[in-house]
Design a protein around this nucleic acid. Sequence first.
RNA 1: GGCCCUAUCGUCUAGCGGCCUAGGAUGUCACCCUUUCAAGGUGAAGACACGGGUUCGAACCCCGUUAGGGCUACCA
Length: 517
Amino acid sequence: MTDRPSRPVRVRFAPSPTGSLHIGGLRTALFNYLYARRHGGSFILRIEDTDQKRFDPTALQTLMEALQWAGLQWDEGPEVGGPYGPYVQSERLAIYQQWANWLVENGKAYKDFNANTRPADVPFDKEARKQAYREKAARNEPLTITPPSCRDLTPDEVAEREARGESYVIRFKMPQSGETIVQDYIRGEVRFDNQTQQDAILLKEDGYPTYHLAHVVDDYLMQISHVMRANEWLPSYPLHAQLWWAFGWEMPIYVHLPVMLNPNGKGKISKRNPPKDKFGNIIPVMVHDYIAAGYLPEAMVNFLTNIGWNFGDEREKFTQAEAIERFDLDRINEANSAYPVEKLQWLNGEYIREMEPLELAKRLKPVLEKAGYEVNADFLLKVVPLVQTRIKSLNDIIPMAGFLFREEFIPATADLLIQKKMDAAQTAMALQRSLEILSALKDFSTAALQEAIQPLTESLGLTNSQLFGVLRVAVTGQTISTPTFETMDILGQAVSIARLKQALETLRSSLEKPIPA
RNA sequence: GGCCCUAUCGUCUAGCGGCCUAGGAUGUCACCCUUUCAAGGUGAAGACACGGGUUCGAACCCCGUUAGGGCUACCA
């Protein structure tokens, strides 16, 4: 098989709007998008909102925001429209009902009136669910209501029960013997024994379709050429294939993508059990958390493209345009992968470092403003070179250089001011002498500061690290900060000197205090 | 429990029967640079899950075991 498509490429991303976009969903969308662009095809966004219980009115907007942030513009779908709309499934109910009835009329599906045999709610939690299945199996109880007794009702019986106003669902008549052989682009042929299959519900009691029906009908009507979806759908693929065959429609190519697992490889990455990094920090799962955390869309896209697929040439860093040029289905991995967050950190840092300072400033501005700082563009541009190699995410600028944008200054305590192998008296002396020099300075530029202060290390018998460290903490209030002289330059002479004096005061009062026992 | 998928350094991956004494990246560690933190430079440690086949030859093909993941809903 080759991934040269035999018909116009039309792929879709079909999320269920239950919240913000999941990071795994973004990757699925991305693979679809890359493939569409690679072959000059169309990328379609379809909203699968057929579960009224999980309806979230804000989700659609958030979802589209996330896709747009990542630069995945859809050619057809909500807002942009298209020739095969509507693209929201809840607006297509009549279509699904029509086709469900067509299946019934043609003997491929049937009305099931046994609403009272509906199984109790399946536990949502994965472990609990698994446990429930195990227990049922141990008691030799049927796991589900198979086979439903309405499968072989006569037309008269059906008409009679319908006339009585009994509610029903429409179930698919799955073949009860033989096997269903399906083709997955990545895995090849997969076989399922039909005896292990059940008659899935296509149309619910409320008239809404299930995913199974809706996606087949829509993919047909929208002329989808490739169904690229997460591999958790593989077990229901035989159902879907049988549906295509029952309708007599030409099937698209199905591509079951590997999924992303928690960083420790245990379980699918999920927001319900948020994964943690090695420091115990929660790793975001939703795209919006990454936006809020200051990740760059270009880094995110690069990162995600590298999981389950790789660029080749041993290149880790590439643009989306470059990825489009050589994206192919044949090199998609079949195995799931643990979510490698640390690579995202690294890549994000790489993108920050190679960015034009002006561009970085533009992206940093809203972050600072969100933190409550007023930002002068020229001033920010002076700060950018000092933070560019030091931040891995946009938000890192707050702890690193937030003090430059704050009105109020939080002075350091004496123990922070005192550097390694120094005492309070020595530190005070260093500050005193520095103050004398700096007060007299006419030129307060980085180079001049360096030149003026440097000789002091020798006369005080200190290392650069010690003396500059004292000044750093005095001026920034932090032990980790932007470089000392550059920072003083930006802060200006008056502010710098005021802070040095303040530090000196802190040390003097600590010297006067009796040493605690 | 049943069914399905998967298995190369900690992690993401290259490899598609001889180019493999298994390559890259990240992470880790060491050293250099150094004004803290970074960045940068140099280097090190680190993997074909296991057992059978097939073959002159196997990380690559087949079978089994083990492990992981998924599905088993009137959720997608």
